[in-house]
Design a protein around this nucleic acid. Structure first.
Lengths: 340, 340
DNA sequence: ACAGGTTGTGTTAACGCTCACAGTCTTCCC
DNA sequence: GGGAAGACTGTGAGCGTTAACACAACCTGT
């Protein structure tokens, strides 16, 4: 480790001088250019090592017009779903040699997303992944700077960016069908906030199955994804325990709240009421009872979104509003059974 | 929105030409330099608007030698703790006008952290936050490029970077003391993986309280933070139900597993065994029974780490191995009671 | 021996911005 | 009225890299 203390870090020219070559040759070595004599290469590498030289990717980005950085706009990455998705995105991006710059929005409105896009565009990202589970966020995609490759995750078909998401409708169908198959007359639903596209998809799938089967469609109870909101819904459902025998809850956290309310009210699960959740968070398996749920493969979503985005970047042209869907999976545990 | 389709994005010179000024004046407007006539400023702003100009922060970073980007190295940001910390970091950084570039490590070893540091250093980050909960990660801090401002979060005192963390020992003391106060003879412990500094701190606090009170110190059961490992430990504890009356579990996820095992084995909580967790994840309040636990304010840790890092960046000198500690808080719920 | 290629290297000019400095045009005071 | 001190603006250089081109040296095959 050379690097004289208190001095500016070495640049290519310094390496060149030490190695007795031109800076351009150093650049060639660094970029694996074929036409460099191997003896020269080792001399350059030795000089790099000796000086502790590190290339300046900022300067490189300025001239190549590629920063090898991807922007990610996300919302409340404390929730299991977004956090896992972002994690998958970061992993996939790094495997492809890209950096990831993250902006986490507190409130998700068009203005916030617009700002984030501006922010990232100034920074010179090569592409943007927007984790846009809310309608308002999805709309903001329309104001993307033109020519900026982008992909929406868990979003709707707004603007003309490709969308990668788990098939929410399918997942909700799986949950509802399972409960119907077990012999329940109908299925109640605790939904997510209605401005979330995922919540909407789950409502749609649930309603479609009930309708197709000619069953009554109860009014959905709206939650906000939090265990507390599930708890509130659970209290209301417990009060109707005679009437209600099966509930599809739009995520596992709310399902936990429902479970808690039922326990407090002495409603047995699955004896009196069966419950199916959504997400399959790591905790679900250890709820009491272990929760039957729909698994979303967030990692796959993240990886796939990067794949699509990189395609777009390489081709240099927007791909338009394709739709890539990752299938959900039914996970059977102990929170469901036949009624009565 | 001007921006002629298919052309290169406008640069300062383009704005300057339209506004009838020099590029330098445009720069001054953009940087709120005082000495610009207000009439000139509005003309420039109009030109910017007309062309859809966006400044190129990469070029700016090249000359200023500041990227206004902070690097964050984290490990498995799917876990609630790291995810929340990173979220807090990102929020605080953005409030201070900094971008955040994230690297999430799969495996946490010195080599991985070293690579990540290199990666970020090349990219020209102004400082690095290392969320280094494992001993091996903390060690890697010693190989930071010199002159690179850095701060460790939830890490140990390796290298000479400042450390910001929740006082794990204190938290464990609170948990253990609470159980002792309730009259339990001693307290068992389900620990995290022993190469995690946080796990170690919790063991230390737990052991210290027992020792000081002259109580027997049972052997700790090692877990890996996952609910499943808690479940396994819970089975073993349930088998000793006569002997065991109080358990301090090193995180809430494992506590859930313990709870599940106890439920399966017919061990009543808190009737037969009292449990205290750690973290206070959003779910804990809705466990059965609601979990008494120790709350960590991850947001505060994230914010504080950024504050320290920015100080270091501004001053231009490393601050040395200071230690900043965020206090944990005892949260009383229903999983503890007096023995018998 | 010489045209034509391939291989290895150096030279120069960008990339888009900020900094340092050098103006010009006011204003104001003695 | 003249000079100094401001206010405002322009000019040139340079940040550290890559791209484009130029050029030397060395092979080929005729």
């Amino acid at each position: 480790m050379g690097s004289n203390p208190g001095r500016r870090p070495p640049v290519m020219a310094d390496v060149a001088k030490v190695a007795g070559v031109s800076h351009q040759t150093v650049s060639r070595v660094l970029n694996d250019h074929p036409n460099v004599r191997s003896e020269t290469r080792t001399r350059v590498l030795r000089a790099i090592d000796q000086l502790g030289y590190r290339r300046n990717l900022v300067a490189r980005a300025l001239v190549t017009r590629h920063s090898r950085t991807l922007g990610v706009i996300s919302f409340d990455s404390t929730l299991y779903g977004p956090a896992s998705t972002v994690y998958g995105i970061e992993q996939a991006a790094r495997d492809a040699g890209y950096f990831v710059s993250i902006v986490s929005l507190r409130t998700i409105d068009k203005a916030g997303v617009d700002d984030a896009i501006d922010y990232l565009a100034e920074q010179g990202v090569d592409g943007i992944v927007v984790v846009a589970p809310q309608r308002s966020a999805a709309q903001a995609l329309e104001s993307l700077p033109m020519g900026m490759p982008a992909v929406a995750v868990e979003g709707g078909h707004a603007g003309d960016v490709p969308v990668v998401s788990v098939d929410q409708v399918k997942g909700a169908r799986l949950a509802t069908e399972h409960l119907l198959d077990q012999g329940h007359e109908t299925v109640w639903h605790v939904s997510g906030p209605t401005d979330w596209l995922e919540a909407e998809g789950r409502i749609e799938g649930w309603r479609a199955v009930l309708t197709a089967a000619g069953r009554p469609v109860p009014e959905a109870l709206a939650g906000d994804w939090s265990p507390r909101s599930g708890y509130r819904a659970g209290r209301r459902l417990a009060a109707m325990a005679g009437e209600v025998t099966a509930v599809f809850v739009a995520n596992d956290q709310m399902a936990l709240g429902v479970l808690r309310a039922f326990t407090e009210e002495g409603v047995r699960v699955p004896g009196q009421i069966s419950i199916v959740g959504f997400d399959d968070i790591p905790e679900s398996e250890f709820f009491s009872p272990p929760l039957t749920t729909i698994r979303q493969d967030f990692g796959a979503v993240g990886r796939h979104s990067i794949k699509v985005l990189l395609q777009e970047i390489e081709r240099g042209e927007p791909i338009g509003p394709e739709c890539h869907v990752v299938p959900p999976r039914f996970v059977s545990r102990a929170s469901t059974s036949s009624p009565r």
